[in-house]
Design a protein around this nucleic acid. Structure first.
Lengths: 343, 343
DNA sequence: GCAGTTGCCTATACCGGTTTAGGAGTGCGC
DNA sequence: GCGCACTCCTAAACCGGTATAGGCAACTGC
């Protein structure tokens, strides 16, 4: 175990024959140095293998290049949910451009998240945060207001208080989904929704009811789940056990996993998809093209969503005109799992 | 936009009527303070809403409570791969106990990762790192040696140089998988492997060949992919288009996604699973229980794996006896997708 | 030829904690 | 009454950067 060299800015300055300040200027690409000196400094730093100590830098410059993201869902579900990794990769793609890092934490409850964001912010560990999975009367709104921390809330403005928000128009998307199924001729439609506590679930639920009313569907069921495949399977099984004349002929799911599970339940029950029942997934990850039949889905660009959120966060942090805005509404991508009902 | 209060240790000290040092002692739970003073300090901090500035802390105490993790796979694949999120959640579960955070970054190449780890470490941003997805002659081994950075390498010791490693015994697992299929009566077996560049893929490939040799199988095919569902589907299609007497009667996949894709290809080709062909997945995420038939799989505790890795990293960082060790070998979990071959 | 500007660089005071050496008060033994 | 140990606390020197005021030439304009 050799003792590490501990090379600091002073060593670099000495080696290059300049002052600490000069090295600082060079490494922050600020004007006031001749090209020759600049080169000499970089050369010295390279030889010594020096990189600025970020703790020291953020202490004196009072800025950090880190943003936070806390996700509050059971670990088991997260692994399966393609949404998050794709979202994160979108966020990352923008952070990287700004040489900014992502501090990630999985939490169990919103309260825990509030505590975490609080200590991240007060500990000056992050320069801002991305808030996801809003619920009604979300405690994070007040907490963030109190802290004055820059954030972007991923969720409909009706849920996110006055926070800068980026959201998908779930109501319109649900309406489009139901309209499409109705246009195919379906009169009995069900929806297997996500966690009831989440705000966007409530929005989708209301939109579904409204669409069913407007379209005068003969039957419209909704059931809440925890987003897991198991729950999706259970819900599907329960929906499809009704007598053929009473059961739904089409089911909309709130994510891809549950739709995959639903597909397998239908097959297990000897029902053909889309012959006996049409299935419509949500998010449209690659998974939807891996099943047989392939899954029709409400499709959106999750990677781009994440990137947009990150860009907006930078806007909030720097203070220039970052406004709340929706991202493009998910569009229907018909594949093999939807068709007109039999008969 | 109200100007933030900027409360520091000095304010807390003043309010509690003590020195900065006393506040520091209190917040680090060190001895040398009366209970009364301690209480007064915490009370003052609470009233002012103060939390120590972590940059300042790590600058003077030269320790940070952050560990790094860079993942080098195309974003599109990551989203679908249940492995990582589960792994991360396992890592997190241990980090949280130590109030340590995870710095996550998705990178495109190993070279990029080397640069990243380098700047993380030299910038004193992390106290150690988790290295995954080793390949033959991995440049990270030398880089980490040079830096003297504490790491845990997730990969077989044959790949990770002298680095402290935690690994799954892929060779044994592959052998068990092949043995099981052979025991069922399969004589023509294929394997749809992962990225050829990855070390563990090579290990599995070699083990598969060896097992096929020992068991004197009549046919043993292997094909490398990029882990994506599409690639898995293509590989499966190509394997199954041979004449019935020549094609494999069982296929082992290197992850769950490709197995799901394979299942759908079989169904699309009118082949029954497991009647015409047996399918065996790898990792055993929840996905394996969502298909019809359910997927037999080589199953392991990915969450526990991540937790083990994190614990080992703490051992390396603190210097106490953290040794390389394997985690439990994946075990075969038979479900509905494997059976004796027809006839 | 002299003030004014400009370009390049240094000295030094921070940032907000931790960590030392040491001081003030108390209790104890003798 | 004095030395000694012990408890509780303070003052001040760090940590490794950034920011800022200012110094010194050389060049400009007139």
């Amino acid at each position: 175990m050799t003792t590490p060299p501990r090379v600091t800015i002073k060593d670099v300055a000495a080696r290059a024959g300049v002052s600490k300040g000069a090295v600082s200027l060079a490494f922050n690409h600020k004007p006031g140095l001749s090209d020759a000196t600049r080169d000499r400094i970089f050369e010295a730093a390279r030889e010594l293998g020096w990189a600025p100590n970020l703790a020291a830098r953020s202490l004196s410059s009072r800025r950090v290049d880190v943003v936070g993201l806390a996700i509050c869902r059971p670990a088991k579900l997260l692994g399966l949910e393609p949404f998050y990794m794709e979202f994160i990769s979108g966020v990352e793609s923008v952070l990287t451009e700004h040489s900014c890092s992502l501090l990630l934490r999985l939490v169990r409850t919103v309260e825990e998240e509030v505590g975490l964001q609080d200590s991240w912010w007060r500990g000056k560990q992050i320069s801002g945060s991305i808030l996801v999975d809003f619920r009604a009367d979300d405690p994070r709104v007040a907490a963030v207001d109190r802290l004055g921390m820059p954030v972007v809330a991923v969720g409909h403005p009706s849920l996110t208080g006055g926070l800068t928000s980026v959201w998908t128009d779930d109501a319109t998307a649900v309406t489009e989904a139901v309209r499409y199924l109705a246009a195919l001729g379906h009169r009995r439609v069900a929806r297997v929704g996500g966690a009831a506590a989440l705000g966007h679930t409530a929005i989708r639920t209301a939109a579904f009811d409204e669409a069913a009313r407007v379209l005068e569907l003969a039957g419209a069921w909704q059931v809440a789940t925890d987003f897991s495949g198991d729950a999706g399977a259970r819900a599907t099984r329960s929906l499809l056990t009704a007598a053929p004349a009473d059961r739904p002929t089409a089911i909309v799911y709130d994510n891809d996993i549950m739709a995959v599970a639903g597909l397998s339940v239908a097959s297990e029950m000897g029902l053909s998809v889309p012959g006996d029942v049409s299935l419509l997934a949500w998010d449209d990850s690659q998974l939807c093209r891996l099943t047989h039949p392939t899954l029709s889905a409400m499709s959106h660009d999750v990677h781009g969503f994440g990137a947009d959120v990150a860009r907006t966060l930078f806007g909030v942090i720097t203070g220039d005109g970052a406004g709340s805005h929706p991202v493009p509404t998910p569009v229907l991508t018909p594949r093999g799992s939807t068709a007109p009902p039999r008969g």
